[in-house]
Amino acid sequence: MSKIRVIARLDVKPPYVIKGVHFEGLRKMGQPEALAEKYYWQGADEIFYIDAVASLYQREILFEYIEQTAKSIVAPFCVGGGIRTTDDVARLLHCGADKVVINTAAIANPQLIRDCAHIFGSQCVTVSIEAKRKGDGWECYTDYGRIPSGKDVMDWVKEVQDLGAGELLVTSVDTEGRQKGFDVELMAGISTIASVPVVAAGGAGQLEHIRDVIKDGNVNAVCIASMLHYDRITIREIKEYLLSQEIEVTL
């Protein structure tokens, strides 16, 4: 097993980091630059910054908040929300992002994934999949878990890999924000067919949830939000627990 990455996820509705349940009922948690710095010093392996409303409101990416957040951390910084073109990606890299997260625009225009991979390399392109259970499978959603796309999740995983995606950020719309555990079955299904790293998001409420999604969901990284935002635990404590469970992490 490679070292598991423990990622702090900031869902941002500028100027605040917000948190909801099932992506709804958003609460203010703090300012992105302050939280990014806090989780950086706690030992976060990466920081994900997702603008929660840019796609939904169809507004421009607010680059100044991203640059401000990037300034305080010497660690990997991944940014998403509202990316529509390769120019957006270039501007984000020049604001301090190392990777970008694309969902809505990729579903509307899958070619964007290929274009980004060609210009910036696959390692720079994380495709976000917002999955909601439907029948025996899962359906992809867009616009922060609001709009069903009609695409089957497993088909989409194969398609985006072929287009050059370098990582998958998988959020279960069903478990997101409830703090009752990840959708382990979804993660395991995706990990089985994925040839790129899989990052699990949506549902961590207890340490056991994190262990289970790593061991049974076979993911390469986990995104943590609520547990951190409510100061229930630190990244360091999560990592110490994972080590005690014989899961490799960096301290």
Partner: peptide
């Protein structure tokens, strides 16, 4: 045989 890209700490 592992996922590529290799992303993480070493």
């Amino acid at each position: 045989k592992h996922p590529v890209p290799h992303i993480g700490w070493a």
